[in-house]
Amino acid sequence: MRLTIFGATGKTGLHLVEQAVGRGDTVTAVVRDPGRFGLRHAGLTVVRVGDPDRDADEVGKAMDGADAVLSAVGPRGRNVGPVAAPVTRALLRGLDRVPSRRIVVISAAPVGPTPDGDSLLSRAVLRPVISAVLRPVYDDLRAMEEALAASGAAWTSVRPPQLTDGPLRGGYRTTVGGVVPRGYRVSRADLAHAMLACLDRPETIGQPVGVAD
């Protein structure tokens, strides 16, 4: 496939690029600073876009002719302000350059409802506390998902719980349309693998997809 990957210098974004080129995809990696991007591969093109919201032409050029777009752009912290929603809206404005209008983005498990079968500790303590402490982050991600749902794009939002720097194992669980019950963590490598796998799963189009160990 021809893929355009935004947020390619982030921890998950690097895994996305590495795994995509490793499986034979042709990848355009969109970054703010190419000097920070050390990956080199015959099937990889690195493109600089400083601000997707302002550099609309560059965003469109980076997407032009792609089979799908993946975004590893997400909130940088509770005090930074919205990031995921404005960037995703900018990508949606350029998605006409992608014939399939296919886009896969990272969200988070607390954006969705508490899944049936979750533990009492998770329902009564963990999720309410985390959601309260990180409310600005999840508000940003909810706004992002609302923009996707209203866009007419062939979208998927992947909702992981706590992310770790563990290796790619491939033994993770997914839940289409919800959150994985009793799923408390997943590695960034497995998250990237799940995002790429969604490209071959038509049932994930127009759906959130929970992923967890």
Rank of each mutant, 00 (worst) to 15 (best):
38 G>L: 15
37 F>G: 10
9 T>I: 05
30 V>D: 06
56 A>G: 06
38 G>S: 15
58 E>T: 01
52 P>R: 02
12 T>H: 02
57 D>H: 13
25 D>A: 14
14 L>D: 10
56 A>D: 11
51 D>T: 10
27 V>A: 01
11 K>E: 15
48 R>G: 11
19 Q>Y: 04
30 V>Y: 02
20 A>V: 01
18 E>K: 11
31 V>K: 08
53 D>G: 13
33 D>L: 13
10 G>C: 06
25 D>M: 10
32 R>C: 09
13 G>W: 01
10 G>H: 08
41 H>C: 11
58 E>G: 12
28 T>G: 09
16 L>N: 02
53 D>A: 15
18 E>P: 03
28 T>W: 04
43 G>K: 15
55 D>Q: 06
57 D>K: 11
10 G>P: 07
11 K>Q: 15
20 A>W: 03
32 R>E: 02
21 V>R: 09
24 G>L: 07
15 H>E: 15
35 G>Q: 03
38 G>Y: 13
18 E>F: 03
25 D>G: 09
9 T>G: 12
40 R>D: 07
16 L>I: 08
44 L>M: 04
43 G>Y: 11
48 R>C: 14
35 G>D: 02
22 G>S: 10
9 T>M: 12
49 V>R: 11
19 Q>I: 00
39 L>F: 13
24 G>Q: 06
9 T>H: 09
50 G>Y: 05
58 E>S: 06
13 G>Y: 00
41 H>M: 05
16 L>C: 05
34 P>H: 13
53 D>R: 13
28 T>Y: 02
21 V>C: 03
51 D>K: 01
22 G>W: 05
20 A>G: 03
51 D>L: 11
21 V>K: 10
23 R>H: 08
52 P>L: 05
19 Q>P: 09
24 G>D: 12
55 D>R: 03
41 H>I: 07
58 E>D: 13
25 D>L: 10
